[in-house]
Design a protein around this nucleic acid. Structure first.
Lengths: 142, 142
DNA sequence: TTCACGTACGTGTATATACACCTATCTGCC
DNA sequence: GGCAGATAGGTGTATATACACGTACGTGAA
C-alpha cells in the first residue's frame, strides 16, 4: 500500500499566484517607465484618482476607491505628502481627514502622463482588454 | 483662452491599477480563508512550487519560477525557514544556495489545501478561466 | 445631559516588493 | 598559477500591504 501523497498539481491554476505574479510583472513595467518622473505607479494612481474626483476626499472613501485597506492608505500617502503633492486636513467632522491634490501634485501627475502612456501601450500589447476589464470589475466589486 | 488642463480620464483604464487592485482583492480572499493554517497565500505558493519541482532549487531559479525579484525571495523565505518548512543550504558550487521543502513544509502545505480550494472556488466564481490564463501567460512571459 | 455605541482614523507588527550596491565564488585565458 | 570577467547571492533602503488593536469624535436615547 502506497503512502497517501498529496497532489499539488491542481495548484498550478492558482488564481492568487497568477494575479500576483502578473501584478508584479506589470508594476515593474510601469515603474521602470516612470522612474524618471519620481512617481511610482501606485503613487501616480492616487494622484489621478484625486484629480478625477476633483474635490477633497475623506481617507476612508479614497481607500475604498483605490481598493486598499484604509490603514494601508495612511502610509501610502506619506511619501506624497512629503513631496507636497497632496494635503491632508481635518474637516468639520473632526474625525474625518480629507485628502486633496495640490498644484504641485497635479503638475507631477501631468508630467508623468507620457511615461504612463508608454507603459500602458507596452502592457496593452500583452493583455487583451477583455481580461483587463474582467479584472477591473473584480477589483471594484470585492 | 482657457488654461490647458491635462485630461486624466484615459487613466481610468490603467492596466497597472486594475491588476494591482485585483491582486489585493484576491490575495485577501485567499489569506482570509487560509488564516487558520498559518500560511499566507504567497507562502503557500512557494511551498507548492518547491513540491512540484521535487528537488532542491537554486535561489535564482526559484525566483524566476515565482516571478519575484531574487532579492525579494531572499526575504520571503525567511518566515518559511523560521518555521522550518524549508531548508537552505550551499551546494557544490559555493555560490549557489539551494532551497528544499521539508517534511514539515509538505505537511503544512497539505493541511492548507482545503482552505486553498475554498478560496480558489470563491475566486473562480468571479473570474473566468480565459482571463486567468491570459494573466498567467503574461506573468510567465515577463 | 450624559453615556453607550457607532464611526473615522492612526500605530504596532509582520510580510511583500524591488532597486542600487556590495561580496564571494567560479571559469577561462594567458 | 593567476587574474579579468562573469555568476550567485545578500544588505541597505524605501515603499506597499493588511490585521489587531487603540483613540478620538459624533449621535441618539434614557
Amino acid at each position: 500500500m502506497k503512502a497517501k501523497k498529496t497532489d499539488f498539481q491542481e495548484c498550478e491554476d492558482c488564481a492568487c499566484f497568477a494575479v500576483r505574479r502578473a501584478a508584479r510583472a506589470i508594476t515593474q513595467i510601469y515603474d521602470r517607465h516612470m522612474r524618471s518622473t519620481g512617481l511610482r505607479a501606485s503613487q501616480f494612481t492616487v494622484l489621478v484618482v484625486l484629480e478625477l474626483v476633483g474635490e477633497p476626499v475623506p481617507m476612508s472613501r479614497l481607500a475604498a476607491r483605490l481598493g486598499v485597506e484604509r490603514t494601508t492608505l495612511t502610509r501610502n500617502l506619506r511619501p506624497l505628502e512629503a513631496k507636497r503633492y497632496i494635503t491632508i486636513r481635518t474637516s468639520d467632522d473632526q474625525r474625518v481627514r480629507t485628502v486633496a491634490i495640490t498644484e504641485r501634485g497635479r503638475a507631477a501627475a501631468a508630467a508623468a502622463m507620457p511615461s504612463w502612456r508608454k507603459a500602458q501601450a507596452v502592457v496593452g500589447k500583452h493583455v487583451d482588454n477583455a481580461s483587463l476589464h474582467a479584472l477591473a470589475a473584480l477589483g471594484s466589486r470585492a
